[in-house]
Amino acid sequence: MIGVGKIKQYSNVLDKPLSKGKQEVSLSAFAFLFSELVQYNQTQVDNIAELERRLEDAGYAVGARVLELLCHRDKGNRRETRLLGILSFVHSTVWKVLFGKVADSLEKGTEHEDEYMISEKELLVNRFISIPKDMGTFNCGAFVAGIVRGVLDGAGFPAVVTAHFVPVEGQQRPRTTILIKFAEEVLRREARLG
């Protein structure tokens, strides 16, 4: 029989060595899969808000695992405990692993103390997506917002995270901004830590 003796059998997934995370699949494979995720969820909802919530849920599950994986593999089982630290972890480390590049920008909201924005000119998940007119402000970036929320929540920084299209002058396609609004307790703790 083919393969006998070639593969080591692991009875438990935890006994397996953790992959280095260098493996890749084609972008199309991901795009096809993501499109199915969106289409399936469209059949489960009757409005846009609900659809975004479901995509965010799916992303949250990814984010929670990414946090665990990266803290273990890249940070020697340590994680960020300060606001700016965790934000730059998301903007740099997480983005680089998931999307192959650091996010285009990380900014602090000008109107509210508790708001931060991560912006991306062309968010990977929105690459092949065009929104039909009747779907208004729907943004598939909700999935990425979910990933961000999953990472932040898992690290002890609960926040409301949403995805928005922001028109850019001179560009045909809008950029996607992930808006992070931290929970009150996070800011109180941050103030106490000084």
Partner: peptide, 26 residues
Amino acid sequence: FANVERVNAELFTLTYGAIVRQLLTD
């Protein structure tokens, strides 16, 4: 494969996992 655009397999794997989990719940 060397010439197409590629993404990290972990993003793909975890996204697929999220789909399966959603289906199991629904």
